Amino acid sequence: MIRRLMLTTSALIGMAGTAMAADVLVEPAAPAPYVSSVYDWSGLYIGINGGYAWGNVDTSTTIPAGSNINGVASALAIASGTGGFDSNGGLAGVQVGYNYQTGPYVVGVEADVDWSGLDDTRDSGIFTLGGFNARTTDDLDMNVLATVRGRLGYAMDRLLVYGTGGLAWSDATVRRNLDWSFADGCPPVGGGLQRCHVGEEDFDIGYTVGAGLEYAFTENFTAKVEYQYIDFGDEPFRTVNANIPNQPLDHEVSLDIHTIRVGLNYKFN
């Protein structure tokens, strides 16, 4: 009986050892290949954008040395020609750019051009001094706004946070009219006023800085929201009396704009 039990135990131990050896010889399954979940922002893209712009125009008038404008006219010109006004309107346009990503950092360049709806007027109202009246009107007209900018961002997979800055260009023009109640021989404009001093100044080149968020909702399509501040600086210009010689006026106009836009881009692989 004892001998039979010993033989049975030996057989069981042998079978267990064989099974363990077989388990050791079985090759483990290969791990699944690693697929990165990080979005790659590198590449060329094009897109469309739309949004809103609001800005400020500041104006001033001074009397240049040697002008023979009398004291009353000088005071009226300075009072009516100094002030400011706000302007706002829509934006719609296109953009093209290129990004390069290294690690989480994204550097790129972008250019855009937009139609602009900024078109507003300042009327100083009637200023009266010594029994004489004067009024200044300024008109801002901007149809095109364009920028060329660098971008520097930090990518968190499909979300890109970035800053931007560069050059801005526009076709903005501020036109200025100064009307007097004592400018004999100049064209009448109603209300007993006549228009002799007329001038305008263009705003071509400025600078822009801003920031934005962009999200890639597919491999090729991204959406963004972006803010920009655009400063076109101060522009001086001179007007002369069309009817009376040696009565120039010097003017200075400044223009700055804020924009907020949303955009949709298509990125080429």
Rank of each mutant, 00 (worst) to 15 (best):
R175C: 00
V38E: 01
V144P: 05
S37Q: 09
V109W: 10
A172Q: 07
T82G: 10
W54H: 13
G14K: 07
Y154G: 07
Y100H: 15
G103Q: 04
V253R: 08
N265Q: 01
Y227K: 09
A32F: 07
M20G: 14
L152C: 04
V198R: 15
G192R: 09
G165H: 07
V94E: 06
N241F: 03
Y105R: 12
G50C: 01
E110P: 10
F182E: 14
N99P: 05
D204Q: 09
V174L: 02
V35H: 15
V148K: 11
W54G: 11
F232M: 05
L255H: 06
A134N: 10
F127R: 07
E201P: 10
Y39P: 04
G103P: 02
L178F: 15
G108N: 12
S80Y: 14
R195C: 11
V72S: 14
K267Q: 04
W115L: 12
A22V: 04
R176F: 04
R195Q: 14
L76S: 06
D141G: 09
A53H: 09
F217N: 08
L249M: 02
Y100T: 07
V35W: 11
T173G: 05
R3E: 15
I63A: 04
T136I: 01
V94T: 05
S36E: 00
D23I: 00
S80V: 07
M142L: 08
V26T: 13
D23F: 00
A53C: 09
R149E: 10
P245S: 10
P187E: 01
R158I: 02
G66D: 11
I78H: 08
F268L: 12
D234I: 00
I13G: 11
G71C: 00
I78V: 14
D157R: 07
G43R: 05
P28Y: 03
G14E: 00
V253M: 05
V144N: 06
P236A: 02
E235H: 12
A183C: 09
R261T: 12
Y162H: 03
L7R: 15
Q101S: 06
Y52G: 07
W180G: 06
N220Y: 01
A146S: 14
V148P: 13
V24G: 03
F232R: 06
G199M: 05
A183Y: 09
F132N: 15
T208R: 03
Q194A: 13
V161F: 11
G17Y: 04
T8L: 02
Q95H: 14
I230N: 06
S124T: 13
V198H: 08
L91K: 09
N241T: 05
L193P: 06
D202T: 01
G263A: 06
